[in-house]
């Protein structure tokens, strides 16, 4: 039965599968192929050049810069967003007054387009008149140029990213919290455990599967979400806040070098593949624990 060719099943799958293949799997293969070729111009025939593009990549300081930036960007945004998301979920799930308003406040950034909220944050960050520096001026501190200072630009992007994402991750924790049994907490209360101890010994371990899931998604987002760069810094100053996907965009559509852009894309895909692999290994462990 299982070995028979099932025409009906394939007919049902075909339309969806062909779109997925045409815009994900096929371009992946084409990117890999193109990363080994080069042409003088877009109309000239391309020729096989072996690893030359990769040689170029290894010698490209901007590539190393954006890769390093992307690493720090993930390190800076992922744990913070997750910690905030857990806190938000605990608050919204608790008995304090106004939880539905709180939930609304935390979640709203999720549904707003990154591009339009970046416009608002651009004002918050702007040098003299910006909200942050006006507030700092109130206490007599002269605020920095958040987006123009090479040491601050990437961190400023991180702050906005955490603001945008934490509420989204909160939802997953909220869903998980609602499946935890109230008896467990009643028992812990009876034993006189402190709030922190209950969290550390019961809630946090039980939320582990959710944390893993959110962790992977957050890391993926750190590589895939670059919309705010277009408004806030354009990767500047001097690539100090540039990220890999934005560099791919620049290479392909500003510098018009689709061969090098393809090479960068392959690096991006390889990074995503490694993350996927780690996820599979981790999730496997989780299943064993159960």
């Amino acid at each position: 039965m299982l070995n028979r060719f099932n025409l009906k099943a394939w007919l049902l799958l075909l339309p969806a599968l062909s779109f997925l293949i045409a815009f994900t799997h096929w371009p992946t293969l084409k990117s890999i192929w193109r990363s080994f070729t080069w042409a003088r111009s877009d109309v000239a025939p391309s020729q096989f050049v072996g690893f030359e593009n990769y040689q170029l990549l290894l010698e490209d300081p901007v590539f190393w810069k954006v890769f390093e930036n992307n690493f720090w960007y993930a390190v800076g945004t992922v744990p913070t967003s997750i910690a905030l998301a857990i806190m938000m979920a605990l608050w919204v799930n608790s008995k304090i007054r106004g939880t539905s308003l709180l939930r609304l406040a935390f979640f709203t950034p999720t549904i707003l387009p990154m591009i339009t909220v970046a416009n608002i944050w651009l004002f918050f960050y702007s040098p003299q008149i910006g909200l942050f520096n006006q507030l700092l001026a109130l206490v007599g501190i002269e605020g920095p140029n958040w987006l123009g200072d090479p040491d601050l630009a990437l961190s400023s992007l991180m702050v906005m990213t955490v603001w945008k994402e934490a509420g989204f991750f909160m939802i997953f924790y909220l869903a998980a919290l609602q499946t935890l049994s109230p008896e467990l907490y009643a028992a812990a209360k009876l034993e006189g455990a402190s709030a922190w101890r209950i969290f550390r010994k019961i809630t946090f371990p039980l939320l582990m599967p959710t944390t893993l899931f959110v962790l992977i998604n957050a890391i993926l987002n750190a590589f895939k979400l670059v919309d705010h760069l277009f408004i806030l810094t354009k990767g500047g100053p001097n690539n100090e806040s540039n990220l890999l996907l934005y560099y791919i965009y620049e290479t392909a559509f500003s510098f018009l070098d689709s061969y090098y852009a393809a090479t960068l894309t392959v690096v991006m895909l390889a990074t995503l593949a490694v993350i996927a692999l780690v996820q599979m290994l981790l999730l496997d462990r989780k299943i064993h624990y159960r």
Binding site: A9, I248, T265, M268
Partner: peptide, 29 residues
């Protein structure tokens, strides 16, 4: 539906959960 290649087809679908089209803007363009 039960059919040969179902696992493979499902794997193809799952890959796209990881690699969203925005990563492939160059070739898709």
């Amino acid at each position: 539906e039960k059919f040969a290649g179902r696992g493979f087809a499902f794997a193809l679908v799952l890959t796209q959960l990881m690699v969203m089209p925005e990563v492939l803007i160059v070739e898709n363009y």
